[in-house]
């Protein structure tokens, strides 16, 4: 069993339960998943970090049927507004990928899954969101 690494650096796996973290502007509170040279909202240059909620609601979604090679279709892509601030793009997982099962404004919670393995056996762990009412 190899080690695990997060697929992106804003997913934290080694500090309690898996969660998302954002750079936060110390002046205006704007949140960024990537590093910024200055805040795009207010222009200031000091940033801290903020742990984000693993619960949110689906603001929008699409069901992708035609994708890049090696991506299994159909899958659900969504924009999720997180409780307490922050908006994330994610797959909706553990749901039938059709409009009868994916609902706008549906409550969802974060989960993690293994998305790939490199040639040394290291696993990349990704995050997804699943409907709150699923098991």
């Amino acid at each position: 069993m190899g080690q695990q690494v997060p697929i992106v650096d804003y997913l934290v796996l080694d500090d309690g339960a898996p969660h998302l973290v954002a750079h936060q502007c110390e002046s205006c509170g704007a949140l960024y998943f990537d590093r910024r040279n200055a805040c795009a909202k207010c222009g200031k240059t000091s940033f801290g970090t903020k742990a984000l909620s693993d619960h949110g609601t689906v603001r929008s979604y699409t069901i992708v049927h035609r994708a890049a090679p090696n991506i299994a279709v159909p899958y659900v892509s969504a924009i999720v507004g997180l409780d307490g601030g922050g908006v994330v793009k994610t797959n909706i997982v553990n749901v039938d990928p059709d409009p009868d099962h994916v609902q706008l404004n549906m409550p969802v919670r974060m989960t993690t899954f293994v998305a790939g393995m490199d040639d040394d056996g290291t696993e990349a762990v990704a995050f997804g969101f699943e409907p709150e009412e699923s098991a």
């Binding site: 690494v5 997060p6 697929i7 992106v8 650096d9 804003y10 998943f33 990537d34 590093r35 699409t62 992708v64 994708a67 890049a68 991506i71 299994a72 899958y75 892509s77 969504a78 924009i79 793009k89 994610t90 797959n91 998305a115 790939g116 490199d118 040639d119 040394d120 290291t122 990349a124 990704a126 995050f127």
Partner: peptide, 21 residues
């Protein structure tokens, strides 16, 4: 293929279709 964080999001592999589209 060895996972190495790169870019502004520290990604180790392509995220298209994994973290949305």
């Amino acid at each position: 293929n060895v996972f190495e964080p790169s870019g502004r999001y520290g990604g180790v592999m392509p995220v298209e279709g994994v973290l949305g589209t």
